[in-house]
């Protein structure tokens, strides 16, 4: 089993790499963070008897992707599974960000994901599994996370359609929609700032990574981890979207104020550390 994983140097991507290695799959890991890519490769090779290739690549850069594809073709690799984990979240209020920060969200979460998916689909074995990481946020209109949530909605709808298009070619497509994932200490701080609901909507990383692979192999199309998150989703469908947007706006304003309070000394770094912490995946490309 050959698995291709993007955004593999940190967060959910790294946990997925661990899960695949544990299952004995051979993996190709890509990320723009070379140092951590090397470290995860070493860590996994010390534990598991598998083949690992790492390819440093900024998926938003066409030349990088071309080089990546050349390397894959040179190694004559074909894949059985693809995990699209790379994603970023730079958000606060739309107008409080530089435009590039907003544009990057779409570039990474949408454009880059489509590009690499297209290339890997052309190098697939049959049957083939794809996992897209959307988000619980894809289900709601999200003031203060507007572009991010919309980019995840794009993936959510795209994945569903792609799955139907490719069903006859034995490609099955799973969309993972997690709430928060406590992947690093900064994210834990952000979850904490959201109070009870922050913690309650946070999913367990070890469970999400295991079940995602299980469900993908079983041919499921959507995975919302956590009972409470599912209740939210169902409840949301019963309410007018305008009302949901207002409710969510109120909640984010509060939790962001609290988070800013505890982190006021690092205001200068806000551009790098977004106000609304990225709860789904660490900012890796």
């Amino acid at each position: 089993m050959n698995v291709f994983i993007t955004g593999a140097a940190g967060g959910l991507g790294r946990a997925m790499a661990v899960e695949c290695a544990k299952r004995g799959y051979n993996i190709v890991l890509t990320d723009c963070d070379e140092i951590h890519l090397v470290q995860i490769k070493n860590g996994l090779l010390r534990q598991y008897d598998i083949n690992i290739e790492i390819i440093v690549c900024d998926l938003t850069n066409k030349e990088d992707v071309d080089t990546l594809i050349k390397k894959i073709d040179f190694l004559n690799l074909k894949f059985d599974m693809m995990l699209n984990i790379a994603g970023i979240d730079n958000e606060g209020a739309f107008m409080s960000r530089k435009y590039d920060q907003i544009g990057d969200i779409v570039k990474v979460n949408v454009e880059a994901t489509l590009h690499i998916t297209y290339e890997i689909l052309n190098r697939r074995n049959t049957p083939f599994n794809i996992v897209f990481v959307s988000s619980l946020a894809s289900q709601f209109p999200m003031p203060l996370k507007a572009t991010y949530a919309a980019s995840k909605r794009f993936l959510f709808d795209f994945a569903l359609s792609l799955g139907v298009e490719l069903k006859e070619s034995k490609v099955s497509v799973l969309t993972l929609c997690p709430g928060g994932l406590a992947t690093n200490p900064t994210v834990i701080e952000a979850i904490d700032a959201q109070g009870f609901f922050g913690k309650a909507t946070t999913n367990r990383l070890e469970i999400v990574s295991r079940k995602t692979i299980q469900k993908a192999l079983r041919g499921d199309t959507v995975y919302f981890p956590g009972v409470l998150n599912n209740l939210f989703r169902i409840f949301n469908n019963l309410l007018p979207r305008q009302m949901v947007a207002n409710l969510i706006h109120r909640r984010w304003v509060k939790s962001q104020a609290k988070w800013l309070n505890t982190n006021n000394q690092s205001m200068a770094n806000m551009v790098k550390t977004p106000i609304t912490q990225n709860l789904e995946t660490k900012g890796v490309i």
Binding site: A17, A21, Q39, T183, N184
Partner: peptide
Amino acid sequence: VRDWYMTTSEGY
């Protein structure tokens, strides 16, 4: 101590 399962750079 950490409330949640997290991986380090080496995936531990």
